[in-house]
Design a protein around this nucleic acid. Structure first.
Length: 438
RNA sequence: GUCCUGUUCGUCUAGUCGGUUAGGACACCGGGUUUUCAUCCCGACAACAGGAGUUCGAAUCUCCUACGGGACGCCA
């Protein structure tokens, strides 16, 4: 364990936002990288706006991403409580210190901090020294008796012995206020790392709740892999500097460091996220793919697909390399488990060009006569058949795929047929013929 | 308006001490494999915001301009 202590201090007033997730991630990565402690602190001092559902959503999504906290809600720790709403006595104590020293005063029912009048120098790991003068006194306790953000934020960081404050660059200007507070309390300020913001894919400004892809739960709902999301997010404002982009969590932790973070804001790119997620999906172990695949099927109301485990495993085996996202899984494999699969209209139009009626009859006779039903034998027989009849093998392949799956895309045809089994394939060909589509 | 902060391909980025054909990835476009395809392979296109200066030499250092982002609450 190092003495590094970082914190993520969200305010549970809405959905968990991708920018917040990235901030949490960078804090978590730094804690993991240094062997330090990751603290989760809930800044719920504004009781008006806090919602219970927001807190639950926050904790659920953090856990889904795998960003577990060493201290905080539901796990406790030596510097609790970890909800600001429960720390009023602590704030009062700190306030008294300022009042005793004549650094805070009352005006219009509120309590104000007397500002030093000196230019503050913020020691920022990413931006270097940043100088800013805080010109006016500011409120630290509202006239309704509740403390304001700047005040409690600094006290908590002092009290919880936070060593590095990693947060969005939107807080950089506020930091001069915080420096005034550190000086007033007579304690050294922590190191700061103000990370660049995530901007909208196009158009001006930073990513907001209304932007597509801005909510963490969207990714959970679409069955993204947390490691895929994390990999992508880690690349927004940071890189390992060696041209490697696809990384495991362990590799990211090992390479991540604060001085490596960029100064420039990054635009959100959904396509790259999808690509990185798809890569992680492809590289999943058979076991992990199986386990997650089953979760997806159950969650989408296709539990019946999971009853035949041997079949499911075979289907997963031939489908994994083709699948771009788990969201597509049920639709991608449904026909294996449902004998009443639909015939896709577009796929039908393509097939119509190849005299499907004739082709199918020929294929049926051929397959029925085969004793060894394997990828190699089917492929060889099919090609011979095509040659004998003076047609392209593709004519048979397209037609056959359509007949047994109702679609024009999917895994390797031969593997698909073997997984279905000869009897099933013959039955499906018959069903297609009976449907009188041609 | 004031203050803070930034500016390399469309996008994410590499390029720490000035000398590179300015590299990689996504996207896009073109070709190939898979006689389907969303996989895979190959290729093409594509950037140092602009201007001064320092220097033999600047994407890299300095200054100015332009543009972007942020903060200016008894919100967090």
């Amino acid at each position: 364990m190092s003495n590094v202590r970082v914190r993520f201090a969200p305010s549970p007033t809405g959905y968990f936002h991708i920018g917040g997730a990235r901030t949490a991630l960078f804090n978590w990565l730094y804690a993991k990288h240094t062997g330090g402690t990751f603290v989760l602190r809930i800044e719920d001092s504004d009781t008006e706006r806090n919602k219970k559902e927001s807190l639950e959503s926050l904790l659920t999504n953090l856990r889904w991403m795998g960003l577990d906290w060493d201290e905080g809600p539901e796990v406790g720790g030596p510097y609790g409580p970890y909800f600001q709403s429960e720390r009023n006595d602590i704030y009062k104590k700190y306030l008294k210190q300022l009042q005793d020293e004549g650094l805070a005063y009352e005006k219009e029912g509120a309590i104000w901090l007397k500002v030093s009048g000196e230019t503050q120098t913020i020691d920022d790991i990413i931006h270097g020294p940043v100088r800013r003068l805080e010109e006016k006194d500011f409120v630290i306790y509202r006239s309704n008796g509740t403390p304001v953000f700047h005040f409690v934020n600094v006290i908590d960081d002092i009290d919880m012995k936070i060593t590095h404050v990693i947060r969005g660059e939107d807080h950089l200007s506020n930091t001069s206020k915080h420096m005034e507070l550190y000086h007033a309390f007579g304690v050294p300020a922590p190191k700061f790392a103000h990370i660049p913001l995530i901007l909208k894919t196009d158009g001006p400004g930073k990513m907001s709740k209304r932007d597509r892809g801005s909510l963490v739960e969207e990714y959970r709902d679409k069955f993204f892999l947390p490691e895929g999301l994390i990999n992508y997010l880690s690349l927004l404002g940071w890189s390992p500097k060696n041209d490697q982009e696809l990384m495991s969590l362990e590799e990211i932790i090992a390479a991540f460091d604060l001085p490596g973070i960029n100064k420039t804001h990054a635009r959100f790119d959904e396509k790259k996220l999808n690509y990185i997620n798809a890569e992680h999906l492809k590289h999943l172990s058979k076991e992990a793919f199986f386990e997650k695949g089953i979760q997806v099927l159950k969650a989408t109301g296709h539990e019946d697909y999971t009853h035949n485990v041997p079949l499911l495993k075979e289907v997963f085996a031939i489908v994994q390399e083709k699948l771009r996202s788990f969201e597509e899984l049920p639709n991608f494999i449904g026909y294996f488990f449902d004998d009443n699969y639909n015939f896709d209209e577009k796929a039908l139009q393509k097939v119509l060009k190849h005299e499907p009626q004739v082709r199918l009859a020929e294929i049926r006779t051929l397959l029925a006569s085969m004793e060894e039903f394997s990828c190699e034998t089917i492929e060889a027989e099919l090609k011979q058949l095509a040659e004998r009849n003076g047609v392209q093998p593709g004519d048979y392949i397209h037609t056959l795929r359509f007949a047994v799956s109702g679609r024009s895309v999917g895994p390797s045809l031969y593997h698909m047929l073997v997984v279905m089994g000869k009897d099933n394939v013959l039955k499906r060909i018959q069903r297609c013929l009976d449907a009188k589509l041609f």
